[in-house]
Write a protein that binds this DNA or RNA. Structure first.
Lengths: 234, 234
DNA sequence: CAATAACATCTAACATGTTACATATTAGCT
DNA sequence: AGCTAATATGTAACATGTTAGATGTTATTG
């Protein structure tokens, strides 16, 4: 079969273009990760379209993207549901996250500048303030920002987006866990250790600290399953 | 804003469902990775729809997915183009690939069974035959299969799909490179070394061999840019 | 002739109508 | 009552019509 046109036109510059499907995607993703849309809950495209004042098309597009990301499950001709948590999938996501972020922090630690360290410390300051006033949402956002900053510090185009996408499953869990506990204080300490290692140019210590930090979540997860079994699938 | 229905219905079993958009996606992806659709070339949705005998909808859906994967670039209200190769993006993909596949092979080597080793060796046998008769396409497919098998051997649900998706960019390059040279013979040798390390349960050697194997491609890439600059963007 | 503005053209984005299919419900039968 | 088959219902998948915006071309003006 003959595909393509043989035409050679193309574009040089990148356009940012925020389309409606992008907006719908962001809104739904946020709703899912914050558990405003609970695991297992049905999503009715038509209703969402109505509520957001758009047609079904951008909603479908957004949902397809979320399905690729594993945040929703589409059953053809039947329905679309917020994906429930699955321990095996989360285990894989955890594995991927450790692989990517330890590799990233290694590169970041090797090439970290005084400027980078300054930004990281600034983030930590804000984390401390958020922790003090028990601002879960704020702390969560800063947590994400810190991990993003480390990805960026690795100096690889698009790495942050990839890591962030693979983190989706885990972000959902992390958000749920943050509310439970003393976890915020512990997390802060771990973050401080990570940044300190980078500041010291201790590459291997940075890697080890990051791995330890990410692994901690695995244990918390099992507790969550006991407390909230309805969120889980298999 | 109120999203969701509060409804709690959901499904247990997984449906496979090959929809038209999945088929179109596979066809286009294959066409892009095989360079039947060349980097920079325009893709006309309407034409593709006509040629495949479907409407524009499944074509758009497929293209959106390819855009997420970085294989096409959509410029709103303007056109859709096969993504040209970008050294910086490829560098990131390479980084991700090394991070994921070395981590995967570590796990795979730790838990490899006689059965796994047998399957890997069977694959190598077929690679040898393909190399002998200069069957580039066959060799390429077996190459992919080997890497997939190693991912599977890590025993993590969905890891293969993630690794495979992140490899897209690189697969395109690898395919172009295979035709050029003695690369097929070299690749075979590297694969043999990897499998041997797994068979010996030499975890660290397996990791090192894999990293070396993947890194080799980086050097070939620069040669490709010299020979075929029109495939590259920046 | 150069710069610019009006306009034509083309495409993706968006809207909406239609179809096919999975599932639940009900009716009919033993 | 219990089982099976016909049917109703609801949803995603698919088709197609419409809109908005990016770009290239041509006309207009200095």
């Amino acid at each position: 079969m003959q595909l393509g046109t043989g035409g050679k036109s193309y574009r040089e510059q990148k356009v940012v273009a925020v389309t409606r499907k992008d907006q719908v995607y962001s809104i739904l993703r946020q709703a899912i990760i914050s558990s405003q849309l609970a695991p297992g809950e049905a999503i009715r495209k038509e209703l969402v379209a109505l509520q957001l004042g758009v047609s079904r098309t951008p909603v479908s597009d957004a949902i397809n993207r979320l399905a690729d990301e594993g945040l929703v499950e589409i059953y053809p001709q039947t329905g679309t549901f917020v994906a429930r948590l699955r321990l095996d999938k989360i285990e894989t996501a955890q594995f991927v996250r450790i692989a990517l972020e330890t590799a990233a922090i290694r590169r970041a630690a090797e090439r970290s500048s005084a400027d980078t360290v300054h930004s990281l410390r600034n983030n930590l300051d804000r984390q401390r303030k958020a922790a003090e006033i028990r601002d879960f949402e704020g702390f969560y956002a800063l947590d994400e920002e810190l991990h993003d900053m480390i990805c960026d510090a690795a100096g690889l185009v698009g790495l942050r987006e990839i890591a962030s996408k693979e983190r989706s499953q885990i972000d959902r869990v992390r958000r749920l866990l943050l509310h439970y506990e003393t976890r915020m204080v512990e997390t802060l300490k771990e973050h401080e250790a990570i940044v300190a290692a980078i500041a010291d140019n201790s590459v291997e210590r940075a890697v080890a600290t990051m791995e330890d930090h990410i692994s901690k979540m695995g244990k918390m997860l099992l507790q969550l399953q006991t407390k909230r079994p309805e969120l889980f699938a298999s």
